[in-house]
């Protein structure tokens, strides 16, 4: 067995530090300083810790770090630097979609995951896409409207 666990993090090859059973959220926040990832519940219910693994949204608070070996992990830190990421940020910012903001990074990651497979989602698809991201402030509607207004971004959906 290898003693080194490699994975791709925001486009860079990295080595996983410590025990593979550690929660991925702890590794990303504490070892890599990726604090866009928030901990809201620690039980995979609230979605504040959402990240992308192989392009799909996953709750990092209930994922053992070892599960991402040889896989691709993306967080909002890299997503926000892309064209579509910027559109998501603007969609949330301009339409009243942000209040306390604690759920918002996870929300943005779920929206990115949704738009990669469905570039022009209707209202129901958007609501379905963010149904694992609990927000206690906004009631979701302004977020949904903001995402519905995003223009399709051509590009790499892999």
């Amino acid at each position: 067995m290898k003693n080194e666990i490699r994975f791709s993090l925001n486009g860079k090859e990295e080595t996983l530090p410590g025990d593979p059973r550690r929660r991925l959220i702890d590794v990303l926040r504490e070892d890599f300083g990726l604090t866009s990832i928030k901990e809201g519940c620690g039980e995979g219910e609230c979605g504040a810790c959402s990240i992308l693994v192989d392009g799909r949204v996953i709750d990092s608070c209930i994922l053992p770090a070892g599960a991402v070996e040889d896989r691709t992990v993306e967080t909002l830190e890299s997503i926000r630097e892309t064209e579509r990421g910027e559109k998501i940020v603007q969609a949330l910012t301009r339409g009243g979609g942000v209040q306390c903001g604690f759920c918002i990074p996870g929300m943005a990651v779920s929206i990115e995951s949704l738009l990669r497979t469905n570039p022009r989602p209707d209202e129901h698809a958007i609501r379905e896409g963010i149904s694992g991201n609990l927000c206690r402030c906004t009631g979701y509607q302004q977020i949904v409207e903001g995402v519905a207004a995003i223009e399709h971004v051509e590009g790499d959906n892999s």
Binding site: D19, R21, E30, G44, I62, L63, P64, A67
Partner: peptide, 21 residues
């Protein structure tokens, strides 16, 4: 263990700790 969605909830770890497995 594959997705861990059951095991990591039932054996829930506090922040910064290993799940009790």
């Amino acid at each position: 263990l594959a997705g861990a969605t059951d095991i990591y909830v039932r054996h829930r770890a506090a922040t910064g700790t290993l799940p009790p497995l």
